[in-house]
Design a binder for these strands. Sequence first.
DNA 1: CATTCAATCTCGACA
DNA 2: TGTCGAGGTTGAATG
Lengths: 226, 226
Amino acid sequence: MRLVIARCSVDYAGRLTAHLPSAPRLILVKADGSVSIHADDRAYKPLNWMSPPCTLKEGGGDGDGAENVWTVVNKGGEKLIITMEEVLHDSSHELGIDPGLIKDGVEAHLQELLADRMETLGEGWSLIRREFPTAIGPVDILGRDRDGVTVAVEIKRRGEIDGVEQLTRYLELLNRDPHLAPVKGVFAAQEIKPQARVLATDRGISCVTLDYNALRGIQDDKLRLF
Amino acid sequence: MRLVIARCSVDYAGRLTAHLPSAPRLILVKADGSVSIHADDRAYKPLNWMSPPCTLKEGGGDGDGAENVWTVVNKGGEKLIITMEEVLHDSSHELGIDPGLIKDGVEAHLQELLADRMETLGEGWSLIRREFPTAIGPVDILGRDRDGVTVAVEIKRRGEIDGVEQLTRYLELLNRDPHLAPVKGVFAAQEIKPQARVLATDRGISCVTLDYNALRGIQDDKLRLF
DNA sequence: CATTCAATCTCGACA
DNA sequence: TGTCGAGGTTGAATG
């Protein structure tokens, strides 16, 4: 990864045409050849970028001696032209390939724990199975209450409206199956937003706030982010 | 803007929970307090990030002496926890506020030029107006052919399928207006992808390849990116 | 402040 | 390879 801080102007011509007037910016050249240009605000989105696979050529390439012009092109014929006016910093660093992001670590764990302790949801409740498959995706937990009524449980770390919508779709589908119907819904999360609670209640879905540490039964400072 | 290259592990807890195992990465701390973590690939998307407004605290904050732990929190209670294991580079740079991106410079210019030279599209063609308003957005150019038939022109720098779809929607709407109907469609671009051309032709929309320099009539090396 | 909608959306899965 | 759908979507514009 190469980090360049430079006063530069930038022209992009591809899916649209765009121009950045001269200003100091960060130019990020990554090992895969991709280039992005960042201002000193906004974490997520670069001002300008070229996605890999692409190639960077320093110098105009026309042999016109414009060595301060960088040209980045990709397969689709998109071009990013960076005119360097003053380089303030330039360093390179070997990072190697990244092991990558592990998502839902805690949510998966919550599901595991809850499946093992269905009595958390109610006395006499039992597990049918985790990740119960349906046509529109797996239901986190399918179980039975003490009366043998089927229960679909949706687990989120933070319970928001879209989670309730998701569970509602599962319930609608599951209730079409005469072998399962009637199916009750339980919305379980470490934290449930008021709006989500109202919507769930309105739809006859019960809400359960989960205590991660209590479920684990032990403390683990490394994972206890809150 | 602060650039830190460090071997680190990262935990995010917010709209979801996610974890990055220990590896060397770039940590970008911007003037607005936002933080993003980049691997050595992918130009656009950070591995992990925290959008502003948010606050960064170096050190665990528990007084536990974990000074190598950075904690970033925002209003919504989202947390990003970076555990620094080995700092390989750390530099700060003053960039100031960015003048920002100017989009569509050339596309807007193309529209201007074409409106002034409707005969480019056909002998005797004339302009009704640019940015002709409709309920679903403005049509780039509305004009008439030599027979007085209304023509809707969609202009793109690169003609792709979505441009044809857009023009199709305009045509459908415009043809419902008895004062205008029948309305013909013209898809004009500096470069038209084969797929887009096929789709347009299939829908009775004619395609025109625009020559920017010919339309301008003069050369301008500064703007001529191709 | 909530809501809607476009984006150089990106990114992964699947046919 | 193209298409489809989700995303910690982000970000701007609007009521």
